[in-house]
Computed example of a mutant assay.
Amino acid sequence: MKLVPVPPGVDVIACSTCHRRGDPRDAAQGPAGARLLAALREAQAGQASTGVAVRAMPCLFACAEACTVHLRAPGKIGYVLGRFLPDAATAQAILTFAAHYAASETGEVAFAVWPEAVKGHFLTRTPPEGFLVA
């Protein structure tokens, strides 16, 4: 494993190697994670900048919950979300939530503005380095 530095900011990190249960390992279109990553990048290209970077990482170790993304930013609560379909509607919902996340001070996003397609997909909430949630 090699750690690669990236600029600090709001990141949606998609597992590029996720395989959904039941998907053939040799699917012609590639792993579901790679398809979700492609959908995220395509959706992002079609919208105004929100200050959110879409990044790829091979294996987030959430294999039972594929397709998985990690949302993080310095000084904010982070989230891992999974069990997604690798499609355009999912990608747009993730990016919409990420835009609200980017605009929040702590990473908390009011439930009232969560896109329907992210509800029920949260796997973990992680505190930022040096903090705990009280």
Rank of each mutant, 00 (worst) to 15 (best):
L85A: 15
Q44R: 15
P86T: 02
P8Q: 05
P86I: 01
P31E: 06
L123A: 02
L95R: 10
S104K: 12
Q47W: 10
A43C: 05
L71S: 11
M1P: 09
D87N: 13
F111W: 04
A89T: 06
L37N: 10
G82C: 05
A27P: 08
L3P: 13
F61E: 14
R55V: 03
A73D: 14
F97K: 10
G33V: 00
L36N: 08
A99G: 12
H70K: 14
A134I: 10
R35V: 00
V4I: 10
G46R: 12
A48P: 09
P115M: 07
H19S: 00
V118I: 13
P115D: 03
C15E: 04
G130A: 03
R72H: 14
D11Q: 15
G78K: 04
A39P: 06
F84N: 03
V10S: 15
A102C: 12
G82W: 01
A45M: 05
A89S: 10
G130E: 03
L123K: 06
E105C: 04
V54H: 07
T50E: 06
R25W: 11
V54D: 11
A134N: 13
T17F: 01
D23H: 09
E108I: 02
T96Y: 05
T106H: 14
R20C: 08
P7M: 11
T90R: 00
A14R: 00
G82T: 00
F122P: 07
M1I: 07
G33L: 01
V10P: 15
C63L: 01
D23R: 12
R21K: 14
V52H: 12
A73G: 15
P74H: 07
H121R: 07
P24Q: 03
E108Y: 07
V109F: 02
A134V: 11
Y79F: 06
L85H: 13
A39W: 01
T96K: 09
V118F: 09
P115L: 08
G46C: 01
T50L: 04
